[in-house]
Design a protein around this nucleic acid. Structure first.
Lengths: 219, 219
DNA sequence: GCACTGACCGATCAATCGGTCAGCGCATTC
DNA sequence: GAATGCGCTGACCGATTGATCGGTCAGTGC
């Protein structure tokens, strides 16, 4: 299925437009994508895109909001499902990393919004969604700290920002690693394990055993 | 000095072009900047930009390479100047954060390159510069680890990537924090101190006293 | 005085941009 | 079977894009 050939097979045009826009915006950003590109990849006419979305910005906002809400819901579901507060963070980091790898377009879009142009974030409809997502993670970390898992002086906001930020940043710099000799021999799984190890050593209340290799237990 | 008025006062046109391009590319990215914008801000004709740089990409590469090399040299100078290996990392984190705040255009350009489009990084002249920068930091961390400051199983590559990545990511998300209620009461300095604390607790060899507040000593 | 160079400019190019518009085909409804 | 509404299209618009053009001008070496 070459990408230049329209593929209207059964899928509604609206969904094809949103799908194509998600892929293209993720890859090249708002300014780097032309509506004609979206239309071509979706197999529809350019005017049809403007039939479903009033402006290019509206299409971008719709795609972005959808990705952010999907990520927020998945995070909430996963954090709520983990019963043991001591395993919540390390298990989350592994799952979060896998999720970002499995949904590269979502990861890229959210990343671009979080670190992108000022005018996009402050007025658009996406900031409340991201804020709720972050506050949610902060609440879970605070609960784990109050349960005695983390040091009392470990700030839940800082810990949450590290959890979300480092893994997200890592997913967006992964393509650079094969080009740098220092990274030779460090796989993605190894990196996540060692990151989890450093973070947990840095925030946990007592010096228990190491947390390396959590990828292979209780899953 | 309004930005619409050309200001050729004494500064050569080439420098004004590069300066304007650095500011604009940092703020809006490659696709978001028009050569006419650069020319207007530099107070020169658009054709003059193409007289000094063959293509828009060549101008972008020149600006980017200059920023990356400047950052690399400053990092090397600062790391080499710190004699005590135990204080090298915490002092570096504070200095690095301050540097990124003081040079927002450099921070944004480097950040965009590190996390940006795949095709820009792999073929351009910037990757070797960044690779050398990173390997340099890795070497310093490895030396500190071999001196007994860090745990023997702390991977210098992972530690270096955390040092450089978290602070850089933090500088690019700082504009979002005032809009999120969880961040209320956490200043930039507080954040850097707590980040340093978590990182140092996570990697250091022995459990000594906390490393908070390093901003106010030996400077 | 002459030849030459490089910095610089106004005008202009074809291509592409986001967006508009009249109208087509088709299913539903009265 | 006429009318309505909707999804959709090709043709088109003015504006802007990166890039090129012929040409001006100050300076330099001889």
């Amino acid at each position: 299925m070459p990408d230049t050939v329209p593929s209207p097979g059964g899928v509604p045009a609206l969904d094809r437009i949103v799908g194509a826009a998600e892929r293209l915006f993720a890859g090249r950003g708002f300014d780097g994508v032309a509506i004609s590109d979206v239309a071509r990849q979706a197999g529809v006419c350019k005017a049809n895109v403007f039939h479903h979305f009033a402006t290019k910005q509206a299409l971008y906002d719709a795609v972005l909001t959808r990705s952010c809400e999907a990520l927020g819901e998945e995070i909430e579901r996963h954090l709520s499902a983990e019963a043991d507060p001591a395993l919540q963070v390390p298990h989350f980091l592994v799952w979060y990393h896998d999720y970002l790898c499995a949904h590269p377009a979502t990861a890229r879009l959210v990343f671009r919004e979080v670190t992108g142009n000022p005018d996009l974030a402050e007025s658009g409809p996406v900031l409340p969604v991201l804020s709720r997502l972050f506050d949610n993670v902060v609440a879970h970390v605070r609960a784990a700290r109050d349960a005695g898992v983390f040091r009392a002086d470990a700030d839940p906001t800082v810990v949450a920002s590290l959890m979300l930020g480092v893994t997200l940043f890592n997913s967006q710099t992964a393509r650079l690693r094969p080009h740098m000799p220092s990274w030779r021999g460090i796989s993605d799984e190894t990196y996540v394990d060692r990151l989890t190890d450093v973070l947990m050593r840095g925030v946990r209340a007592v010096d228990a055993n190491a947390v390396s290799g959590i990828r292979n237990d209780t899953t």
